[in-house]
């Protein structure tokens, strides 16, 4: 990767964070923490890894994304808007009556969303089905699955993981957003997930852990071709990454703040954007 490419992806990630905060600001509350933690992964996926065409969003042989932690919708919507799937202004309709942008991802409402998610754990199995369907139909493409580290409490996740490895679904890439927190607090206090990399390796994956905010590392991990085992990437991330006040808030799963607070958060992001472009 050239330094120019790295910078471009970092800028894209920053734009996604700005879009996410603006999207949530429009409603005054939303799932900010887990949206910001996946912004870099989304930037690398949609910015350089995935074969997608916003003008042809249902192209059968496209790469697909299942954001099983469906509450990260705002970050995915910001990514899709920036990619041109729909006008950027639409981001300001989050959770308004009759909106196309509900809290949780919905494939029937939002252009570019490949699978409906929200009931945690379920996106793992649907992603498996999509990858299996692509394989059965001879399509040369991949499905990327983002799972939350709190979501991983769900037993269905491990059913799907076992299936992925047992049936050698190498066209499905698991990304675990290891941001260490869930709604009620730290995952290690609520239901300790233990060593996720070891767990996935034991389930039959080619597993690794990377800095989930390092676009170079993300690019390297996401472009690696799977051999005989499917790939699982544990993303070491910070819940609320990119906005200091959110990072420092213990309960940052969903936050309700006044417009002036959102503006402070945005100022921080805009300042960083200016510094980046200086």
């Amino acid at each position: 990767m050239t330094q120019e490419q790295v910078k471009k992806l970092q800028e894209f990630a920053l734009q996604i964070r700005i879009g996410t905060v603006e999207c949530i600001k429009s409603r005054g509350f939303g799932h900010i923490g887990g949206s910001l933690s996946v912004a870099d992964a989304l930037a690398v996926l949609y910015g350089s890894v995935m074969n997608v065409d916003p003008k042809n969003p249902k192209k059968p042989d496209r790469d697909k994304l299942v954001c099983s932690k469906g509450h990260a919708g705002p970050a995915v919507y910001a990514t899709l808007a920036l990619k041109g799937y729909f006008p950027y202004e639409k981001l300001m309709t989050l959770n308004q009556p009759g909106t196309d942008l509900p809290s949780h991802c919905d494939r029937n409402k939002t252009t570019g969303i490949d699978m409906t998610t929200g009931s945690l754990g379920q996106g793992t199995s649907t992603a498996v089905g999509m990858a299996l369907g692509d394989r059965l139909q001879g399509r040369d493409c991949r499905t990327f699955l983002i799972v939350g580290d709190g979501e991983i409490d769900e037993g269905q996740v491990w059913e799907a993981a076992m299936f992925t490895a047992a049936k050698k679904l190498t066209n499905l890439v698991w990304l675990v957003d290891w941001n260490k927190k869930q709604l009620d607090g730290y995952t290690k206090d609520i239901l300790d997930t233990g060593d996720l990399e070891k767990k996935f390796a034991a389930f039959g994956f080619d597993a690794c852990t990377i800095d989930g905010h390092d676009v170079e590392k993300l690019y390297e991990a996401l472009t690696r071709k799977a051999q005989d085992k499917p790939i699982a990437i544990i993303l070491d991330t910070v819940k609320g990454k990119g906005v200091k006040a959110v990072e420092e808030t213990m309960k940052n799963h969903s936050m309700t703040v006044g417009p002036e607070v959102f503006d402070e958060w945005l100022k921080e992001l805009y300042d960083r954007q200016k510094a980046m472009n200086a």
């Binding site: 379920q122 199995s125 498996v128 999509m130 299996l132 059965l136 299936f163």
Partner: peptide, 11 residues
């Protein structure tokens, strides 16, 4: 869930 994903992929 797999059945649903297969459906989404056209099966």
């Amino acid at each position: 869930g797999i059945a649903a994903g297969l459906c989404a992929s056209g099966m």
